[in-house]
């Protein structure tokens, strides 16, 4: 099975994730989009690991999964804090950085 299929799939997944991150209003969905992007990266890692016969990519994928877990924990905590303070998780209403 040629590896470029997997790579193309990884690109497509990443693009779907990016589109969600850039366009969606709901912070929860944006976080899910980030998870998708990370998974697309993981898929590319494992693909190249398979193509080169080297397990280094597995280690990277492992670390990325741990990173994703940490990111999800903090991101969701921030989301909960945002909701508690402003009763919304819409990103276009979370623009205090402007001021």
């Amino acid at each position: 099975m040629p590896t470029f299929y997997y790579l193309i799939l990884s690109f497509v997944l990443f693009l779907i994730g990016t589109t969600g991150v850039l366009l969606r209003r709901n912070a929860l969905v944006v976080l899910m989009g980030i998870e998708l992007q990370l998974n697309a990266g993981n898929l590319a890692m494992l693909t190249y690991s398979r193509a080169l016969g080297d397990e280094k990519g597995h280690v990277f994928a492992f670390l990325i999964i741990a990173l994703a877990a940490a990111e999800a924990a903090v991101g969701l905590a921030i989301l909960v804090g945002l909701f508690r303070n402003r009763q919304t998780i819409n990103l276009d209403e979370a623009n205090l950085m402007k001021r």
Binding site: V21, L22, V30, L91, N95, K98, R99
Partner: peptide, 14 residues
Amino acid sequence: FQAGDAQRYMAAFA
């Protein structure tokens, strides 16, 4: 560009 909108910042990054 300085809209305080994280999504636009990400778009600029892309």
